[in-house]
Design a binder for these strands. Structure first.
Lengths: 334, 334
DNA sequence: GTGAAAGCGCTAACAA
DNA sequence: TTGTTAGCGCTTTCAC
């Protein structure tokens, strides 16, 4: 990597002249600017990012702490963050918390040392269960803005990007009720998460509003085999409608129903929080509640960058952006 | 963020004393070390990463250029890279090339300015199709080590981590032949990729070795609807065996076969390059060729870090690690 | 119009 | 045992 020093030497001018020339300073003569720029291009000079960061006390880098990158939703949000960040000249450093509180804390430790200007994250499962928020507050106190998406800690004052989990599940359940379904069950593998709870509450509300409906819930642990649990559940319960809270049990429900000789959507109707990609892993395709993950990522990045660009924004004046889901009707509902 | 300067002032010692004390230098008195460390802990002092990077001319950061993070395989490799890098004290900056040559080049531009010490990447589709390698050579020439995984540019001399695509597809095809299948087709959505070609060749070899077999290939474009294409294909061809080159068409083939009234695996046997996660999106579950994506990521990180730690390693002495796949028999084969 | 010098936070050779 | 100084690459104020 060429440095200003080397260019200066070769051109027989001072370092500051080169620096100013490259930054189109008014102070420098046109002729000099031209000479400098030519040599810089020849040597493919690029200002050293690290030196710039040190000097300007900002890194133009965002720390992203993702609970689980193998989750398609999370990966999509990350994609959205990366793209939006790039548009604004920001890089992203990714840490994967693996749903662990400790790794989440480590992520902050690792990056809140000048590596990044701020953080975007979805709260790890363990953190949500233990309801720990001290590390968030500390990081905020240290002057690092934080944006939370999807799974947020409500007691932390920071910008947030969330989904209307409650409403969309409520509406989806209503949809099945209006189809005339009498035995609508709720299947979840994300019981421990804030979003999982909200979705369950949305389902509960819709069901409990009806006289002739009752709650029917299947909670599956991550370690368990979803296929088996669902099969067992279908065999032991009459089910004609399914609301799936996560991105996999929707298609698995469809496949299970079919393998049990049921017709989808005639005998069983299924709706799930999933993606287009996964929705095609069943025939008929899963009717989904789309969460616009990429948009969520983009919004999160915008909120953070906005705060970084306006350090005067009061820390207690935070924005919560609610990204409305879309109901995408595919073949698994009437 | 507290700096050495501030600690020094408060302790009435010099900056270098503080620095040495924190680094357990022999030069400094025990008592002083203790005082310094206590205050440092009190203030939660962390050495400024940027200053360190500038001073030591290395960032302990790896640039990862991923073609598509929504691909489950790629996400898993990224996961493996992140974990291994973390174990060695490295962070990762992620760029997503989106399969575009230009974005891949941009990734290098963006990061080869002191932001990272080296690169790990899978070559973008467009890059493979156009067979461009100049940017790789330039980056290597600039002194940044590169490790390629999965999709590699064979004409670039650098460390590589690849899968035994040819052999494992050959063996999988053989497996179906030994099951007595007579009409084995090869389905791919990754025709343009080096790995896609190798897999096709493995299939071709196995088929052409037999007298009573013939090639039957379905190539699907990313834009097209895999479900429709496969359905159409099954309706127009007699098929009793499927080798899927990508991670989705395997389960889709099973679901399609079932929806057409065929029995899996009795009437049709299916094997795919996929993951455990996706393999459960069909009933029976897909028999898969596992690629050990996490291990691949870990190996890639190891190779890169090893090179960073031993700058004397000759650039023309490169390692190609072949990660053998595992055949995981599930319900979609006999 | 150009250059010298300071300083971002840190380490390390050298001086005391 | 502790402190002074230089320097990593850059920007920017202030002199010339």
């Amino acid at each position: 990597m060429v440095t200003l020093k080397q260019l200066a030497k070769e051109l027989n001018v001072s370092i500051s002249t080169v620096s100013k020339a490259l930054n189109n300073s008014e102070e420098i003569g046109e002729e000099t600017i031209k000479r400098v720029k030519e040599l810089a291009k020849l040597y493919n000079y690029k200002p050293n990012k690290v030196a710039l960061s040190l000097k300007q006390n900002k890194t133009k880098t965002i720390g992203v702490i993702i609970p689980n990158i193998l989750n398609h939703f999370m990966a999509k949000v990350l994609f959205g963050i990366e793209r939006e960040a790039g548009l604004h000249g920001y890089n992203i450093i990714t840490c994967i918390s693996n749903e662990s509180l400790n790794k989440e804390k480590e992520g902050f430790q690792l990056l809140a040392n000048g590596s990044v200007d701020g953080f975007i994250l979805a709260v790890a499962k363990e953190t949500q269960i233990k309801n720990e928020i001290a590390h968030f507050k500390k990081t905020l106190g240290d002057g690092f803005p934080i944006v939370m998406f999807d799974r947020v800690a409500h007691d932390v004052q920071c910008d947030k990007v969330i989904v209307d989990d409650f409403d969309s599940t409520y509406n989806a359940t209503k949809y099945l009720i209006n189809e005339g379904r009498k035995n609508i069950c709720f299947i979840t593998t994300i019981d421990g998460l804030s979003v999982g709870k909200l979705r369950e509450q949305g389902y509960n509300k819709a069901i409990l509003e009806e006289n002739n409906q009752q709650l029917l819930t299947l909670k599956i642990d991550k370690q368990e085999d979803s296929q088996e649990k669902i099969k067992e559940f279908f065999e032991n319960n009459t089910v004609d409608g399914v609301i799936s809270a996560d991105n996999a049990t929707g298609v698995i429900s469809i496949n299970t129903a079919i393998s049990l000789g049921l017709k989808v959507p005639n005998d069983v109707s299924v709706i799930g929080f999933s993606s287009k990609y996964i929705s095609s892993h069943s025939i008929p395709k899963l009717t989904i509640i789309r969460q616009h993950a990429k948009d969520m990522g983009a919004f999160a990045a915008q909120l953070l960058i906005n705060r970084l660009k306006n350090p005067s924004l009061p820390a207690n004046e935070t924005t919560t952006k609610i990204v409305k889901t879309s109901f995408v009707k595919n073949g698994s509902t009437l």
